[in-house]
Amino acid sequence: MRAEQVKKVQVVVREYDAEKDLAGAEAVDRSCEVGPSGSISIFTDLLGDPICRVRHSPAFLMLVAETVAPEKEIVGLIRGCVKTITCGKRGAATPIYTKAAYILGLRVSPFHRRMGIGFQLVEQMEQWFRCKGAEYAYMATEKDNEASLRLFTGRCNYAKFRTPSILVQPVFAGHHLPLPKDTTLARLLPAEAEALYRLRFSTTEFFPRDIDDVLSNRLSLGTFLAYTWTGLNRFLAGPPESWAVLSVWDCNSLFRLELRGAPLLWRGLAWTTRAVDRAVPWLRIPSVPDLFRPFGGYFLYGLGGEGPAAASLLRTLCRHAHNMARAGGCRVVATEVAACDPLMPGIPHWRRLSCAEDLWCVKRLAEDYSDGAVGDWTRSPPGVSIFVDPRDV
């Protein structure tokens, strides 16, 4: 009987209304755990703000799909944002920008799937993107999420584009990681960080033109520079042989995550390693954090550097970010980089918690291009690095 009723349901796609739609949107989010195929899934608690993951972008929108009969019920939702990012470069140092839209958080309640609701939500969101002047739309999904791929690459004509790696490192509650004494660690002012990023990274794919807004956002906890040469006031004019940089974004204030469906063996191992670590902390055993109840984390963005020691210096910065996350009550530190990024060896992570290939798909929305030098960005080969905007996490 339930299946017969679902087949006849009709929906209206409209803009989210925080005053009357909060409970319904939260119910849809709770019913849609995400993750790779298998028994383990990730549940996200948005802490009472369903728009939190897009509201820090220059332009954003959340749509809901609501049934019209027999009674009104929110059964799907989608979030999107529009911003200007780098899609190529002219020569060696001049970025070419495009207005691009990002889709995230597409959800349809389990009882209302395979009815075209997801397609309607994407179609309506793309109409808004076009009204905002977006030339491209892109989204991210797990490479084995067959339902998502059928929708986006099948019905919605998106193309597989990039496969960056998500790297996750647990935060060891009892361990303050020591930093090497022969490395200078400096915190940059937002204006200094902006100057460095524009000088060194503005031609990197997906670099946001409004990087100044990102760096000055209250969720950006700072930009940190590591080098083996003194004289910070001379750095931008003549950097040392080796240096590294990264910025820290506070996802802990936006949402909480929780692993569900993990085998009892995993839970037992996590409990045992933490117990041993508490009993003999001087052994510095890498205990498995409790990720089976809600936890938060920090996201590292703007990772980069140059020189033969860049990877080692980046590792020092990641250790510093770990200590920041520990002080902030987080249980993970995460980042996302191009799969072929030469600095990846300098990013500590646990393979079991990480994802070697996150799949990004892209679609051309406009008939013309803002700059013909790029041509069709959807057909361009990947670069060695990528700039992941923390507002997209």
Rank of each mutant, 00 (worst) to 15 (best):
V6S: 13
V6M: 15
V9F: 04
V13C: 09
E15Y: 00
Y16I: 10
A27E: 14
D29S: 15
C32F: 05
G35E: 08
S39Q: 15
F43G: 15
H56P: 02
V64Q: 08
V68W: 02
A69Q: 15
E71I: 07
I74D: 02
V75N: 05
V75I: 12
G76C: 08
I78P: 00
C81G: 04
V82W: 02
K83T: 09
C87R: 02
T98K: 00
I103P: 02
L104A: 04
L106H: 09
S109A: 15
P110I: 03
F111M: 13
H112R: 11
H112F: 15
M115V: 08
V122A: 10
Q124K: 15
M125S: 08
R130E: 00
K132F: 00
Y138P: 01
N145L: 01
T153P: 02
R155F: 06
N157H: 09
Y158L: 05
Y158G: 01
A159N: 07
K160N: 05
P164V: 01
S165C: 12
S165H: 06
Q169K: 11
A173V: 13
L179I: 09
D182H: 15
A186R: 15
A191I: 07
F201I: 01
P208N: 05
R209K: 14
D210E: 11
L219R: 05
G222S: 08
L225V: 11
A226H: 09
L232W: 00
N233H: 14
R234G: 05
F235R: 10
A237V: 12
G238R: 15
P240F: 07
W243D: 07
L246I: 04
S247I: 01
F255P: 00
L259M: 14
A262F: 10
R267D: 06
L269Q: 14
T272L: 14
L283G: 10
P289C: 06
D290P: 11
L291S: 07
F292C: 13
G305F: 06
A325M: 08
A327L: 13
G328H: 08
R331L: 12
V332G: 06
V333I: 14
A334H: 03
A334Q: 13
D341T: 06
M344D: 04
P348G: 05
P348S: 07
R351T: 15
R352G: 13
R352K: 12
L353K: 05
E357Y: 13
D358Y: 06
L359P: 00
C361N: 00
V374P: 00
